[in-house]
């Protein structure tokens, strides 16, 4: 069942098959989608893709961390992190896809 890794090339191929534009153009579209999402997040915006999920940016304050190897305390600088919250549609599709697999595997 599992194990494959889907990359830009696979997304490009899907666009190419569906849209009838060249492979180069298809690749550029995939890149453009990712870039527009990235740029929006960089501005601190939330990006909401219906039936997929929501990307948001959270600001973290300075906190003390610890080097797990040496035990030494080090400050972790304030930073912005991205959180992705999957939509219910995505969660349900993934969960039902796997529940089916584990049910057939158990038989």
């Amino acid at each position: 069942m599992a194990g494959k890794t889907v990359t830009r090339a696979d997304l490009t191929e899907a666009v190419y098959r569906a849209l009838g534009v060249s492979r180069n153009e298809s690749a550029a579209f995939v890149e453009r989608i990712l870039e527009l999402i990235s740029a929006s997040l960089e501005q601190g915006d939330t990006v909401k893709i219906s039936s997929f999920g929501t990307y948001s940016v959270r600001s973290k304050k300075l906190r003390m961390g610890r080097n797990p190897k040496t035990g030494e305390e080090v400050p972790i600088s304030p930073r912005r992190v991205i959180t992705f919250r999957a939509s219910h549609v995505l969660k349900d599709r993934i969960d039902s896809g796997h529940q089916k697999d584990s049910a057939t595997a158990a038989e």
């Binding site: 890794t5 696979d10 990712l34 993934i94």
Partner: peptide
């Protein structure tokens, strides 16, 4: 891809 159990790496 995720429903199949694949990973997606961009």
């Amino acid at each position: 891809a995720l429903a199949r159990g694949d990973r997606v790496e961009l």
